[in-house]
Amino acid sequence: MSVGMVILAGGVGKRMHQKTPKQFLLLGGKPIIIHVLENIEKVDEIEKVVICSPKEHIEQMKQLIFNHNIQKNIICVEGGKTRQESTYIGVKNLKGCDSIIVHEAVRPFVSDKEFKSMINSKEENAIYGIDIPFTVLEGSEYIEKNLERNKLINVQLPQKFNGEKLLLAHEKADKEGKHFTEDASLFYHYYPDDKIKIMEGSLYNIKITTPVDLISCEQIYKEYIVGRK
């Protein structure tokens, strides 16, 4: 079975209040994207990686891959205007792969073991998810609805899908102009009868979005990640 991977690296640094896109910021002394790639490098099952990046950062990405001597079949392509468009572009570049893993450049703490566990799981489609430890209500200006948190899941990445079906789902969404915030919702919309397994995620699998996330991640990296092999 051939496995490909899409890495979404479309950040431009807006929410981090930085000129440097967050995937290039240093965490524990090295760029966040390098943490991700070094873990993927150890996963032999992944045959090809497509990094979707803004055009102006493609050369920088290639240089980092060279500098850090990352030994993996990686191509860097220009992403789209939205996250969904970027994933679609990535998936198109992996046409023919039986299974596609979708991941983000700003989730540096997913270990090689977690990638392998997802890839080698017997489930065709799977995501990592964790329970929601706080109450979630629906509403904007006023509360409109109670939600049962034990029925909700905090969706994480990476996610794994049947390659052919993920491509078809994206094609349909593109034609219909439908927008989803991530790929499990998109896939489920078009294939409601195909099971998507929720694998137990990790509290360390933080998506670095704000400056506070980066501060937390520095501490987590020092205390829990270095030396984890």
């Binding site: 524990g28 002394g29 090295k30 990640i225 270095v226 030396g227 092999k229």
Partner: peptide, 11 residues
């Protein structure tokens, strides 16, 4: 001292 920390993750 700096590289001892920076390269720790590379063993």
């Amino acid at each position: 001292k700096t590289l001892a920390d920076e390269l720790r993750d590379y063993k």
